[in-house]
Structure formats: structure tokens, C-alpha cells
């Protein structure tokens, strides 16, 4: 049953992947004009150089030929080479992935650790002052533009502190140029971007947990459990929380593609060398291969995220059966 379900989802997702990559390619191809990726206004370039580089990149062929060639490569595990720098697309992705995972993973972890207690407390004492305060903070967190918050944090914790000779936090990059591997150094660089990103996650998720906790606590089986004389603590944590976490699992599952694009703005503001920033920069430069590679990768994550969320949903909520 489950296997059949997964198989069906798998075939549906092939269609989605093809659709996504094709749309991306067509959009790039339609907007590129005659631009040859990697070409600047460099007076040393001659017209014939530009024409030759275009041909070398295969850009003088129609896009569908290009697409078929690309798909053929992907089927053989070859994502091609960047049109800008000639490195393999896979090497770019693998270079950036750890940085992105470091940032997003940390932010998600912080988000989960803070939002669960905040959401539960909000639901248990709903209507109280604590609840109101937390609601206000999370509603505010939802409304702050990430890039602005990033700028303000840089202004305070990097520029201003440094100006006053106080200990400051680095504003850009994933680690210092010199002590690259140093754990403390990495943490220092992580603080500001992870704060911005997790603030957003925390705000969203704590609201969800609060709502679903409220909903669960009003369900019949909770009332039954209470009526049976189960301790309040057991009611809340065993029955209530378990069911209230279902939407959170879904949400985190849906956050998987956010590994690529969710942190993009934060990556750009903090110069974090992640996948989102890579894709953003390369899309602006029409690096077809890299953008297609990242798109493919990101789409797979979306599909996997959705599937994972659904499956976990089933595990956590026995009422759901896959058909």
C-alpha cells in the first residue's frame, strides 16, 4: 500500500521535475537576448571572440536541443559545467551545500527549540499576559523584512560595537579568511544570519503550535482523557503535544526546499556562500547549467519534503491511511 503510494508520487514527480526545468530553461532562453554568459564590457574582446565563446557554450543551438542534451547528461549523472567558470555544477553545489546546511540547519534547530515551548505555553495559558506578549513578538517577527533586520543587526553588532572598541560580530562570510576551520570562528559568523533566519521560523512555528495545540486540547479524546482522570501533564504532553506537532512536522518538511531558496535573502545580506546566493548570482549572469542544476536539486528537495511531510504525518496521526 505504502510502496504503491510512494511509487505513484514518484512518477508524478518526474513530470514536475521536467516541467520545472523546462520552464526555467525557456525563461532563461527567452530573456538572455544575445548575452554570452561570463562576458563583460572588456575592450580586449573582439567580436569574433564573443561569437566563438557563444558557440563553445552551445548557445547558438535552439533551446530544445540544449534541453535534450542536458537531460541526457543528467540521466548519466552529469550536470555539466558552469558556463561562467568551467567548473562542474556538482562541485559548485557540493561546495556551497555545507554552508547552506550549516545556516539553515542551525536556524531550524533554534526555531524548533524555541517555538515548541513558546507555542505550548501560549496555548495552555491562552488569553494570559504571557500569551499576549508572545503573540505580539511572533506577529512582529512575521512582519520584519529579513534584509532590514539583517542590516540593522550588522549596524548594531558589527559597525557600532566595533566603532566603540567593543567586541563585535563579523558581518559577512561563513568564516574568517585565516582561521577557516576554527569552530569558535564559525559560530561567530553564524550568529547574525542564524538569528535573522530563526527569528522568522520561530515566529511562524510558535503560532502554529499554539493554534494546533488549542485545537487539539478542545478535541473529544482529550476531554475523554481528562474525564478518565489522566493527569493534566500527561494529557498535555502525551496526547496534546503529540498531535499538535503534526502541523510542525509538515511545516519543517515543507521547509526543505527552503534549504535552497528560503535563506536566500539572508545569504545575500550576510554574504553567506550558500546555494541560494549561488543560484541568485548565477541566474543574473545566465549561467544556464548552474541554474538548471540548482533548480533540479531544489525541485527534488521540494518533492522529497512534501513526501516526507506526508509520510511523517501518517506516522504521527494514525487516522491517516495512504491510498
Amino acid at each position: 500500500m505504502l510502496a504503491k503510494y510512494v511509487a505513484r508520487r514518484f512518477f508524478a514527480s518526474i513530470v514536475v521535475v521536467l516541467g520545472v526545468t523546462l520552464i526555467t530553461l525557456v525563461l532563461m532562453d527567452r530573456t538572455r537576448g544575445t548575452y554570452v554568459p561570463g562576458i563583460d564590457l572588456n575592450p580586449a574582446l573582439r567580436p569574433e571572440d564573443i561569437a566563438r565563446l557563444r558557440a563553445d557554450l552551445g548557445l547558438d543551438r535552439p533551446f530544445y536541443i540544449w534541453y535534450i542534451t542536458w537531460i541526457w547528461g543528467v540521466l548519466h549523472g552529469d550536470f555539466g559545467r558552469s558556463m561562467i567558470d568551467g567548473s562542474t555544477v556538482m562541485s559548485h553545489i557540493l561546495d556551497r551545500l555545507p554552508n547552506t546546511l550549516e545556516l539553515t540547519g542551525t536556524a531550524i534547530l533554534i526555531g524548533v527549540l524555541i517555538s515548541i515551548p513558546v507555542g505550548v505555553i501560549g496555548a495552555l495559558r491562552h488569553g494570559s499576559k504571557t500569551d499576549h506578549t508572545m503573540t505580539v513578538v511572533s506577529v512582529a517577527g512575521f512582519a520584519v523584512p529579513q534584509f532590514w533586520m539583517g542590516l540593522i543587526l550588522i549596524l548594531i553588532f558589527s559597525v557600532t560595537l566595533e566603532q566603540h572598541g567593543l567586541p563585535w560580530l563579523p558581518s559577512s562570510g561563513a568564516y574568517s579568511a585565516v582561521n577557516g576551520g576554527d569552530f569558535i570562528d564559525r559560530v561567530e559568523h553564524l550568529i547574525l544570519p542564524a538569528t535573522v533566519l530563526s527569528f522568522f521560523y520561530t515566529s511562524t512555528w510558535s503560532r502554529f503550535i499554539r493554534s494546533s495545540m488549542l485545537e487539539v486540547l478542545s478535541q473529544d479524546y482529550i476531554r475523554t482523557a481528562r474525564a478518565k482522570g489522566m493527569s493534566e501533564r500527561r494529557v498535555v504532553y502525551l496526547h496534546g503535544l503529540r498531535n499538535a506537532l503534526i502541523p510542525l512536522v509538515t511545516l519543517i518538511g515543507l521547509e526543505l526546499p527552503g534549504l535552497v531558496s528560503g535563506g536566500l535573502v539572508v545569504e545575500v545580506v550576510f554574504g553567506w556562500p550558500g546555494i541560494g546566493k549561488l543560484a541568485f548570482e548565477r541566474a543574473l549572469q545566465y549561467d544556464y547549467t548552474t541554474v538548471m542544476g540548482v533548480t533540479f536539486f531544489a525541485t527534488m528537495l521540494v518533492i522529497a519534503g512534501n513526501l516526507l511531510a506526508d509520510l511523517l504525518y501518517g506516522v504521527l496521526d494514525p487516522r491517516i491511511r495512504f491510498a
Partner: peptide, 17 residues
């Protein structure tokens, strides 16, 4: 499936392009 496709494209690429 069309909706799935649209929602599966990382929105940012779509916006950029």
C-alpha cells in the same frame, strides 16, 4: 500537476527570470 510544478520551482528563480 501544473500547480505542483509552479509551486516546486524555487520561487526566487521564477522572480529573477
Amino acid at each position: 500537476r501544473l500547480v505542483d510544478t509552479v509551486l516546486a520551482i524555487p520561487a526566487i528563480f521564477l522572480f529573477i527570470l
